[in-house]
Every structure is written in structure tokens, then in C-alpha cells.
Design a protein around this nucleic acid. Structure first.
Lengths: 353, 353
DNA sequence: TTGTATGCGTTATCAT
DNA sequence: ATGATAACGCATACAA
């Protein structure tokens, strides 16, 4: 039962015409008699023709220069994974003429973001992958890129009211609910639960608010009632300890049973809990970065939720390629899985493939 | 910054010879003067030549007929997912000349397995993906296929002392430890925990034993001590209820706190727990099949561990293709992630991609 | 031992 | 409006 691939030549023969004509029909470039066109379209459907993108790609010597505007992994190790992901994608797609130029900015410095964004604009790439962690600063560029016809894919941070080709990341609301579910499972007796926004400017981070909503809604409905949920921004300079601020919280909430850290800084809370020997307090946070893993192995952090940063970079580039190279339809949002990580299944998410 | 691809022609020109000669060097098929060969090899290294995979694939009209020997999804819905996975892989690989013929056997009938395995042998496929759930019956075929030089990939069930190209599936030991970790997290006070092997012939299922080991070892070491772990095979005919047998277990273990079902039959335990209103008993099982999902949404099943059956089919085919088509090195074992599933993150694993 | 011609499926150009 | 043809990079049969 050999199925042969359907070629343009097959269609041409069946339609009693030539490859050239079929090609013109396929690419809507006119100069084809109506009846012939109809006949050919019918046969295309009938034979279920699908273009051979290997041949397409061999033929078209076109290259696609993509830009990746991302924070410096050297300054915040979280960003190493997306970079790895996009490099992996580049490797797979190089055969199709896809090249990526990274534009690395300082995640603590909005000026450097603006500078690099300008460089991207000058480069006029065929497509752009961007982690828009500076909301306000990014807005004017989105407009500019839209005008230049450069498709851009957002990842990590979802932004409303701009029109990216696609957003890649997590469903923040669900993410909060999931954290709530996990902690609830580990808590038999009622008490208070702290939502900790550690060292984040909440006003510029809509997705953290959304996480909190998801978390609260879980405990407001269904079986999760009876807990007291408090939320708090915790700020402190890099080399000063979190202790003082947390001591206050602990004193004010003697029945504190669990902490939900909405970003990747769970390790800083873990450090405190270990020091104060509060290891009965359950702790859930985000991201498989080194300091977090230490406390996950300790079991001071109970579970981490994986935001799949590697996948974000990987799929971001692939979505651009799907659009530019393979001309596929792109869904406006691609939510990545909410992976629940513990010491026992960590390996599989650390080095995915 | 235009990087041009390095072609055979480029090498030939630089070496003052022709494409044919370079080609002979590249493929070690001799008939090349030694000095020319050395010169060409030098240039290949210098220019860092990499073969253009797309052109290779376009050229070689070779097709690869793979066989998939899997249980009938109509009789056990668990097997629908691997089939979907391998169909997905086939779609992606059709461009490279990969075709798959399914050979479907009855998972309750070893005769039908043997019959279909014979058919596979007659077909002489270029490669084979197989779920070897009938251990003894499969053994002689492995020998035969090895002699015929047909590479085969095992999935779902790991089998020792045969030499597949690769095994795709879960690390059963880890899987047991993970289940233990989850249940331990949900149990504040000591009590007994039941390991339930529901309707399985343990003697023919080494991987269930391994799961039990992983589970027990977790509670024998570290922070998990203080629980009493019992294990039990639970057999009952299809239309008779589980109640009688389980009532006995419950009576013998009044402090039963949790149940770990080692296969996909958690829903049958859940049904019992719901009927007896024993909803305080935590329940963990495997696989995202319909009846399990019902009780996961109920929260009678706390967590399910996903064996990623779709991924098993998908990666199984891809490993065969990596070997046959892309001539890559294949690792002898590919462990798929141990995904922890709850109501909140179910969606992402149900319809992956 | 070496070089040339051909074709894989698609596309673009160029006669007709 | 249509069809023939060349080219993309590679592999190979065959001529030299």
C-alpha cells in the first residue's frame, strides 16, 4: 500500500495542463482561464495536495533574520533558559534559512531596553521575539514595529491592547489557582496563607495581580474556604536580609501555615524559614533556578511551578517560523503547561528535549 | 552580515576538482587519489561544511515503512493517545518519506498479539514501534526481528534483556517515589497507606513492582517515616463491584489515610470511596482517561500522574525516524516526564501541542 | 581515478 | 493565457 506524495506535476497531468499553470493557481497570481482554474482547484482538493515545504525551502534561497530582544542571562539567570530555547529552535530551523540575532538588555535598566529596542528597529528584522518586561517603555516600539510590518511574538509577560502575532506564556490566573490547590492539599487545618510579591513593582506587573486573583478565587469558592488569605509586597535591597520584614509578618500572623511566592524569589523566603526553623510552613513558588532548587531538594520549598522558560523561547521562535516560513495560521495565545515540580520529577523539566 | 551556506560545489572549486570527487570523499566510497582526498578533507574542515539536509531529503526518494504494533483503542481507551501520538509524528515525517502501518491487537488476548506480530514479520517493515504488554509472547519475536535487522522501539512497558533501539516510557521507580511524595505532602498525621494493584497480573508486570519499590523506599527513608504501608492486589470481574473486597481492607485498616493505585484504574477505587463517603482518604493514580478525569474534577482523586501516552507514541516514531532517516545516535532509554496533574492544569496535558 | 548529466518538487522567468 | 525550462544542493549512474 504505497501512498505517493501528490506533486504539482500530478495535478497538472490530471488537469491536462502544465506545472506552470497549476503554480499560478496555487499562488493566486492570475493569468489563468477561469474554467481551468476551477478544474485545477477541484483536483487540488480531490487529491488533497499539500505543498512540499522541503522542496519549497530548497528552492527559495530566502533567509529570515529574526531578532530576539531579551534580558541578559548573566544578570538574572532566569533568562538563560529562554535563550537556550531559542538557540535550540534556531538550530532546527537553520535549514530553512532562519537566523537569529540576539539583542540583550539589562533587566534592571529601562534605558538599556530602549537602546536595544532601537537597534532592533534599525536592523529591520523579518520577525521579532521579545520579553516585554518594561511595559511602558515597550509600547511605542510595538506601534513602530507594527507600522514597519515586523511581526513580533511576546513571551513571559502578557500585554493587553497590542497586537502581537502571538503571546507565549502561562495562564496567570490558572497558575494562581493551581498554587492554591497544591497548598490546600497540604493543609489539613485552617490558618492564614501569605501571598508574597517579593521585590516586584506590582503596578507594572499585571500578571502578578492575576496570579493573586486566581489564588484568592480558589479559596473563596468550593472546598477551600476557612483560610485567611493575606497578601503583601516584600521589598528589600539585594544584600540586606529579608528577616526584619518577615518577622513582622510572622508576628502579625501567628497561625501562618503557608506562603505563595508569585515570582521566582521563593528561595529568599525559604532562606528565612530555614533560619527561623519554620519548616512547617508550606512554601510554593516559581521557576527552576539554582537557589530555588537548593530549597526544593531541602524540601523547604514544597513545590515549584515551572513556567517553562526554555519552551517559551523555543516556541516563540517556532511561531515566528510557522508564520514566516511555513505560512501557517498562528493562534494568538499559546499557553504553556503549568508543570508541578518536586524533587522527584525535577530532572525531566531541567533538561528537556 | 550574510552567511552563505557552504556547498559541495564550493568545496570542489576550492579544491580544484569536481562535485563528484568531493562526494566520493564525503561518503567514503573510495576511488579518489590520496592526495586529493587529503586536500578535500582539509577544505571541508576549514569551511566547516555541513550537509544540507533539505536537499538530501529532497533527493532521496527512499520511503520508510514503519509498523506500529499496539493494542486496540476501542477496547481500552488508554491506547487512543499513543495512536494519536504516532499519527501526529507520521504527519510531520511524511515529508521525509515515513509511512506507518498500524497492527492493532486485542489487549486482553495474547493470541491476537501473536497473530499480529506474525503479520508484522511478514510485512518486513523498516522499523517497528511496539507496546510489548505480553512479555512472554513477545520474546521470540524480538529475536526474530533482530535477526531480520528490523530496529524496534519499545514503549509503555520496559523489558530487560532484549536489545531494542530504544525504550520510551516512564521511570517506574521514580514514578512510585513521586506518588509517595505527593501523598506524604497531603498527610499531616500518621496512618496506613494502601498500594493497590487493581486488576493486574503482577507476575507479568515488572514495572508495577518497581513502582511499589519506589513508593516504599520514599517512606522508608528521610522524612516520610511513621506510616504503615500495605500493598494488595485487587481483582474482580468487570461488572462486579469492588466494594466487597475493599470493605475488607478498610475494616482491617481503620486508620487508612491514602491509596496509591499503580495503574489507570484509580476510578474504580474512587467510585468506592465516593459511595462509602470516605472522601478524606487521599487518592493518587495514573492516566488521564475519561473515568479518572471525572473523579479528578470531583476532587476524589487528588492527583493523577500522567504517563504521557501521546508522547510515547510520538517520540517512539521520532526515534525510529532519527535512526533511519536522520541517522542520529539514539539513547537506549528515553524517560518521559512525570507530570503531576490536577483539575487546575489538566487542560494542558489533555490536548498538548 | 575523475567529471558530467540527470532528477528530486517547487518556483520564477521567458518564450509562445 | 499557457507551457517549457532552469535552478536550488545533493546523490548517483555513467561516461571519459
Amino acid at each position: 500500500m504505497k501512498k505517493r506524495i501528490v506533486r504539482i506535476k500530478d495535478i497538472a497531468e490530471k488537469a491536462q495542463t502544465s506545472k506552470g499553470t497549476v503554480d499560478r493557481v496555487l499562488h493566486n497570481r492570475g493569468r489563468v482561464a477561469d474554467d481551468v482554474r476551477e478544474r485545477i482547484l477541484g483536483i487540488i482538493k480531490e487529491l488533497n495536495y499539500e505543498p512540499n515545504f522541503i522542496a519549497q525551502s530548497l528552492k527559495s534561497q530566502r533567509t529570515f533574520n529574526l531578532a530576539a530582544l531579551i534580558p541578559d542571562p548573566a544578570l538574572d539567570s532566569y533568562w538563560a533558559a529562554p535563550k537556550t530555547g531559542l538557540e535550540k529552535a534556531e538550530k532546527e530551523l537553520r535549514q530553512y534559512g532562519v537566523y537569529i540575532t540576539p539583542f540583550i538588555f539589562n533587566s534592571h535598566d529601562d534605558k538599556s531596553f530602549i537602546e536595544k529596542a532601537k537597534e532592533v528597529t534599525e536592523e529591520k528584522p523579518d520577525g521579532l521575539l521579545i520579553a516585554p518586561i518594561f511595559y511602558k517603555e515597550a509600547l511605542p516600539f510595538f506601534k513602530e514595529w507594527a507600522e514597519m510590518g515586523i511581526p513580533y511574538v511576546l513571551f513571559n509577560t502578557q500585554i493587553e491592547h497590542v497586537n502581537p502575532l502571538c503571546y507565549i506564556g502561562q495562564d496567570s490566573y490558572r497558575s494562581g489557582s493551581l498554587a492554591a490547590k497544591i497548598l490546600h492539599f497540604g493543609l489539613q487545618t485552617p490558618g492564614s496563607i501569605l501571598i508574597a510579591h517579593v521585590n516586584e513593582d506590582i503596578s507594572n506587573s499585571a500578571h502578578l495581580i492575576t496570579k493573586e486573583e486566581g489564588f484568592r478565587d480558589y479559596f473563596n469558592t468550593g472546598t477551600g474556604t476557612g483560610f485567611s488569605i493575606i497578601s503583601q509586597e516584600i521589598h528589600f535591597p539585594d544584600h540586606e536580609p529579608i528577616d526584619e520584614e518577615f518577622d513582622k509578618i510572622a508576628a502579625a500572623n501567628p497561625d501562618l501555615k503557608a506562603v505563595y511566592v508569585t515570582n521566582s524569589k521563593a528561595f529568599q523566603v525559604a532562606e528565612y524559614l530555614e533560619k527561623r526553623k519554620l519548616t512547617n510552613i508550606k512554601l510554593v513558588g516559581y521557576d527552576l533556578i539554582e537557589p530555588n532548587l537548593h530549597y526544593l531538594n531541602n524540601e523547604i520549598i514544597s513545590f515549584l511551578i515551572n513556567q517553562n522558560p526554555l519552551g517559551q523561547g523555543y516556541w516563540g521562535i517556532h511561531q515566528l517560523a510557522n508564520h514566516l516560513v511555513f505560512k501557517k495560521e498562528i493562534p494568538p495565545i499559546k499557553f504553556l503547561p503549568l508543570d508541578i515540580i518536586t524533587r522527584e520529577n525535577l530532572d525531566y523539566y531541567l533538561n528537556p528535549e
